[in-house]
């Protein structure tokens, strides 16, 4: 049985598409050695079996040794052909020509065909497996493609949990709501971020109310970098045995966080303030006192910044002057500043 992606490309999203049957490309007898298998055919390298199993983790370990049979140059060529942002993911699969299926494959069960469009599933599986070896250098490829597929067919979203599971991202799979997977795809979460999340979830899983953190991430719609920083901060909360305290304080602010009129960035600022006060109490309080002092000076032109984390005995001062009048104001502000130098250098 051959699923021809050339055909798929022509027919684009033809939902009635059925795989063609053709055993000519591979010796029928040899197929028996590969139960529940898909075979990839690259032009020169021969058939590469991709073993599917009902146990995704078992399947993953078998694949690892088989996939590396592809030659580096072939992979490089294919990667170069990928145009990530033009929705043309068919190009990737087209390069491989055919996928040959064992007729006993679990993927050919009638109910499966009915439920999903096989070309999507096959390409999805292929993409996941193929990019396993290259994901580190192009980490967002897999998730971007998943995102495209999910957009194309919402039913696939329902399969996201399995996909993430197959890919080994989350062991505590039931811990995570479906929306969280969609959120991760929408922020283009890369492999390293997903692994960091996986480790974090493994760490906080047993803590009471740990699921709440997922809720707040979703509410604040943190971007990729902020999520990465939050992971670090949550570890610090756990290190300092303050995770429970953090969740309790957040809960007191539930009204604020659930208010749809308040923007995500305002919520993110509130989240950051709460965390900072818990994990860096001395620093936060020093920062607050410093800001109070600055406010009391009522400087309109001069900006004063302490050294990073107040580490050094120095401050940086800057001012933007637009006219002569402002220059006069600046003179007064510098005098005011000099008068309270002791207070400033007390920080």
């Amino acid at each position: 049985m051959i699923l021809n992606f050339q055909k798929v490309e022509l027919e684009k999203i033809n939902k009635n598409f059925k795989p063609l049957i053709d055993f000519s490309a591979i010796d029928k007898d040899s197929l028996k050695e590969f139960h529940n298998s898909i075979f990839l055919n690259s032009k020169n390298d021969g058939y590469i079996p991709i073993v599917l199993s009902e146990d995704p983790f078992q399947c993953k370990s078998i694949l690892k040794s088989l996939i590396v049979e592809y030659e580096v140059n072939t992979i490089k060529e294919i990667i170069e052909d990928i145009k990530l942002y033009n929705d043309d993911y068919y190009l990737i699969v087209k390069r491989f020509g055919k996928i040959i299926l064992n007729k006993d494959s679990i993927l050919l069960k009638d109910d499966f065909i009915e439920k999903y469009h096989s070309y999507q599933i096959f390409s999805l599986i292929f993409i996941m497996i193929f990019f396993k070896n290259t994901i580190d250098s192009k980490p967002s490829i897999l998730l971007y493609l998943l995102f495209l597929l999910a957009n194309e067919n919402p039913k696939i979203i329902e399969q996201l949990k399995d996909i993430f599971k197959l890919y080994g991202f989350f062991e505590k799979i039931d811990f995570i709501p479906k929306d969280f997977y969609i959120y991760l795809i929408s922020i283009d979460a890369d492999r390293s971020l997903l692994l960091e999340l996986k480790n974090l979830i493994g760490t906080i899983y047993s803590l009471p109310k740990s699921i709440e953190i997922i809720k707040y991430i979703l509410i604040c719609k943190l971007n990729k970098n902020r999520l990465r920083r939050l992971i670090f901060e949550i570890y610090r909360l756990v290190d300092l045995e303050k995770f429970d305290e953090f969740i309790s304080i957040m809960k007191q602010d539930d009204e604020f966080f659930n208010d749809l009129k308040i923007t995500n960035s305002q919520k993110e600022i509130r989240l950051s303030n709460i965390i900072n006060k818990i994990i860096n109490p001395s620093f936060s309080s020093r920062n607050e006192s410093f800001n109070k002092l600055l406010n009391s000076l009522k400087l309109s032109l001069i900006n004063i910044k302490p050294s990073l984390s107040f580490e050094k005995n120095e401050f940086s001062i800057s001012a933007n002057i637009k006219n002569q009048k402002e220059l006069e104001i600046l003179k007064d502000e510098i005098i005011k500043l000099a008068e309270c130098k002791d207070k400033i250098f007390d920080f």
Binding site: D239, N280, P281, S282, F283, S307, L308, S309, F310, E311
Partner: peptide
Amino acid sequence: LKYETIKGLDGKIRYFI
């Protein structure tokens, strides 16, 4: 790890000044 830390000017983790 059970104490407040900051990232120092050399990038290393230290206690707050």
